[in-house]
Simulated scan of single mutants.
Amino acid sequence: MSEREMARVDGTTWDVVVIGGGTAGLSAALNLARVRRSVLVIDAGEPRNAPAEEVGVHGLLGREGISPLELLRLGREEVASYGGRVVAGRVSRIERRDDGFGVITQDAREVREVRARRLLVATGLVDELPDVPGLSERWGRDVHHCVYCHGWEVRDTKIGVLGSFHQALMFRQMSDDVTLFPNGGPELTDQQWEQLAGLGVAVVDGPVTGLRIDDRDRLAGVLLGSGAVVPVHHLVVAPYFAARAGFLDGLDLPLRDHPRGVGKQLAVDAGGFTGVAGIWAAGNVSDLLAGVPAAAAAGVGAAAAINMDLLTADAERAAALRTPPQHTPPSAASDPFDAFAPAMEAEVSRRILGTRVHGLDSPTAEL
């Protein structure tokens, strides 16, 4: 985070600090800013879908095919239009404070801290790809993992699938020419072999050792340990999804295995609450398989939950400030001149005025 940017936000206690400026984080910040919450987004500038710049974002109603970086640019502008702040920075750790949290950022030169009443973690995940030479360089171009994100774009081409029976089934919807490379993965059951054969999916055994790229910088084939090359135009892989949550150490936010065994994620309820007071999470850090539309929806839901939590806290604080002080009647042992408590004033009036209450002679009044 630049010194100039930090100078504008340091020393302020924000209603909400959002860590991560992707789809989930920006969606939450937008909705919080619209209900007049002070909200700061700290973003490290490493969007997961940046490699898919040429492919685009899909399945997002009204923005079909938009560049992922353009989508985030528009989101930052929308947050700013309602008074929210988005700054560049990398959060290194979170610490509890009496009034909430200290969010510590660190760069090569210095450490800075901003204060927050509530936190939203929206840092996403890292795709850990299979160990095949050249695979990471093609990621997001002609190496994919999601049929809903990129299936239409690779339809009717030669598609290879690396190690995943289920992905072979899904991408068979998109092309008649699908080849599964088990590559040392789980053994196929007899039933799975029958299903693949019935669908016309080829299976090629042997270790995958690399990719063949043509002179137009396009994927042309999969290289096997035997030296053979199997022609493919697109390759589908199954990454291990690792939530970006290392900076949360010490806050009792354990990572849990995803039910499908594809990685680890933060556990949250339907509103994104982590179970730890003051901390919510949304997007891929708490839902590894969420696409852009689902991540945006999770951000909106978390924003509503956070705002309600703040509303409740603010209302309780306001009520406490309005509670009048309790006066204790003086005891026999107390100083008779101790303040002008109501009981003392009433006793003095009775003794002096007697029946002449408020200047009226009242023969029925008790002495």
Results as ranks from 00 to 15, higher is better:
341 A>L: 15
67 S>E: 07
90 R>N: 12
92 S>A: 14
341 A>W: 10
51 P>T: 01
60 L>G: 02
16 V>S: 13
326 Q>C: 00
287 D>V: 04
295 A>V: 02
351 R>M: 09
162 L>M: 04
359 G>T: 08
14 W>A: 15
132 V>H: 01
3 E>L: 07
155 R>C: 12
238 A>M: 07
65 G>I: 03
60 L>N: 02
298 A>D: 10
96 R>F: 12
89 G>C: 05
251 L>S: 04
179 T>C: 12
215 D>W: 07
47 P>I: 06
98 D>H: 10
189 T>H: 03
112 R>N: 10
339 A>Q: 14
199 L>I: 08
105 T>C: 13
47 P>H: 08
153 E>F: 08
202 A>M: 08
198 G>A: 15
288 L>K: 04
210 G>L: 06
181 F>A: 05
215 D>H: 11
54 E>Y: 14
164 S>L: 02
180 L>Y: 01
134 G>W: 07
54 E>D: 15
312 T>Y: 12
68 P>L: 04
266 L>F: 09
98 D>E: 15
324 P>Y: 09
282 A>K: 08
36 R>T: 15
162 L>F: 05
287 D>F: 02
331 S>Q: 11
154 V>I: 12
179 T>R: 08
87 V>W: 05
223 L>M: 14
96 R>A: 15
250 G>R: 04
146 C>S: 07
66 I>L: 08
291 G>E: 11
307 N>C: 07
331 S>D: 14
136 S>I: 11
154 V>E: 06
161 V>D: 02
81 S>L: 00
290 A>W: 03
356 R>N: 12
272 G>Y: 01
98 D>M: 10
296 A>F: 00
148 Y>C: 02
359 G>R: 13
140 G>E: 04
90 R>Q: 11
165 F>E: 05
83 G>H: 06
64 E>M: 03
367 L>M: 11
20 G>Y: 03
361 D>R: 13
262 V>K: 04
193 W>N: 13
85 R>S: 07
5 E>M: 04
152 W>T: 10
113 E>I: 00
194 E>F: 10
178 V>T: 13
163 G>E: 03
45 G>I: 09
46 E>L: 06
206 G>A: 10
122 A>S: 02
125 L>D: 05
260 R>Q: 15
301 G>R: 06
186 P>V: 08
76 R>V: 02
125 L>E: 07
352 I>C: 14
291 G>Q: 14
271 G>T: 13
79 V>T: 02
129 L>V: 06
133 P>Q: 09
299 G>K: 04
273 F>M: 09
177 D>W: 08
187 E>Y: 05
83 G>E: 01
108 A>H: 11
277 A>R: 00
232 V>W: 06
345 E>K: 14
235 L>A: 03
90 R>V: 14
242 A>W: 06
222 V>I: 09
109 R>A: 12
207 P>L: 01
201 V>C: 14
194 E>G: 05
316 E>I: 06
364 T>K: 12
249 D>N: 13
86 V>H: 00
101 F>T: 07
98 D>S: 14
81 S>A: 06
181 F>E: 01
